[in-house]
Simulated scan of single mutants.
Amino acid sequence: MFVAHLPVQEIFESGKIVPKEYIQPKDGDKLPPLLMNYETIDCSLLSISNHEELAKLRCALITWGCAQIVNHGIPESVLDEVREMSKQFFKLPMEEKQKYSSKGNELEGYGNTNAIQQGSLNWNDKLHLHVYPQQKRQLQFWPQNPHHFRATLEEYSKQNKKILRIILKAMACSLNLKEEEFLELWKDEDKDNLHARFNYYPPCPMYDQVVGLKPHEDGTLITILLQDKQVEGLQILKDNQWFQVPIIPHALIILVGDQMEIISNGIFKSPTHKAIVNPQSDRISLAMLFIPSKDKEIGPIHELINQESPQLYKRFKDYGQYFKQNIPSGKRQIDAVKIHN
């Protein structure tokens, strides 16, 4: 049964005590997060002939499952505009935002995903939009206030597609594959999917007892994340230790998705990550989620399977069905398509 939840922003602004449903269970005496320390990747240097930059990218995606890229081609002014319009939307009066509210338990639109959460709830509101294929756009959810929202998202999406091609080519070259090898997975905007998820995290006085987004992996091929310019909040899990991802104001974060881990036969890792909450400042982010068409067969690349590296994952279509079915299990959704020898 679908149960609607108030926007978290409304709970915060009403001054109410944080409802018990948002309080996270204690997870023992875990160490405080450490600051992640890895080199940024210069996107302009990612070419087949630049072995040093390719090696840096490969190392980051194997070790952390993510990388911060600079010199990616999107002007700083555009990134700032995207952040500003995100803040402007979430600062609109509630009755204005509710014009774009999600229907039932559907993903698209404004609201939160707490209706489908297992256990405690996320201290997060979102605006989720299906950008590609164009025929799948539900424009009733695309804000017309701020007035430039639609045009800006359209342009930003086009720029992200260019970055995706550069990254997919570089990832393939870093594994000594043909540079087009991964491009087959997301090349047709009339079939392959791009979703935009705008995240808003209100401040919370009980910040150490709630979480913005609970630990999870992305079911994508690749996620391109734009962080808040000032307030940190993204953490990556590595070796049972949480690491804080530092803010580099005009960098973009590349996150390996489950489908890329499968295709690379486990070489690139889909990282467990979460979003934390600040006690005094709100925070925004924008995740661009690249997802192959459900009609495409997904499975490890043949060149990456050998006697030393046996096939780790099945071949199948529509990873989304496995991802959704295994959310209640509490395990990594990718485990559902592992080959257990």
Rank of each mutant, 00 (worst) to 15 (best):
F2R: 04
F2Q: 03
Q9T: 03
E10W: 11
S14W: 11
S14T: 10
K16M: 15
I17S: 15
V18E: 01
V18R: 03
Y22P: 01
K26N: 14
G28F: 12
D29H: 13
Y38G: 11
E39Q: 14
D42P: 09
D42H: 09
L46G: 02
L46P: 03
N50T: 06
N50P: 08
H51I: 12
E52F: 07
E53C: 01
L54R: 01
K56N: 05
A60G: 11
I62D: 03
I62L: 06
W64L: 10
A67L: 11
V70C: 14
V70G: 14
G73C: 12
G73F: 09
P75G: 08
E76F: 15
S77C: 15
D80I: 12
E81A: 14
V82L: 14
R83G: 06
E84N: 15
Q88H: 08
F90P: 01
K97V: 05
K99V: 04
K99G: 00
S101V: 04
S101G: 01
G104D: 00
L107S: 13
Y110D: 02
G111M: 04
T113G: 14
T113L: 15
Q118S: 10
G119E: 01
G119M: 04
D125L: 05
H128E: 01
L129R: 03
H130F: 03
H130T: 05
P133E: 07
R137E: 07
R137A: 05
Q138I: 09
L139H: 06
L139R: 09
H147K: 15
R150T: 11
L153G: 09
L153H: 12
S157F: 12
K158R: 14
N160G: 14
N160Q: 15
K161S: 10
K169T: 02
C173V: 08
N176H: 10
L177T: 02
L177A: 02
E180Q: 08
E184F: 13
K187M: 08
E189F: 13
D190F: 08
K191S: 11
L194Y: 13
H195N: 14
Y200Q: 04
P203Y: 00
Y207V: 05
Y207W: 06
Q209A: 04
Q209P: 05
V210I: 13
L221N: 07
I222M: 13
Q227F: 09
D228F: 08
Q235G: 02
K238T: 07
N240E: 12
Q241A: 08
V245M: 00
I247A: 05
P249H: 03
L252D: 05
D258K: 05
D258W: 03
E261N: 11
E261C: 12
I262P: 05
I262K: 05
N265L: 04
N265W: 02
G266R: 09
K269G: 01
S270N: 07
A275G: 11
I276N: 03
I276C: 06
P279T: 00
Q280E: 00
D282Y: 00
S285P: 13
S285R: 11
L286R: 07
L289Y: 09
S293I: 04
K294E: 10
D295H: 08
I301D: 04
H302E: 04
N306V: 09
Q307L: 14
S309W: 02
K314Y: 06
F316T: 03
F316Q: 04
K317V: 02
G320R: 07
I327V: 07
P328A: 00
G330E: 00
I339Y: 11
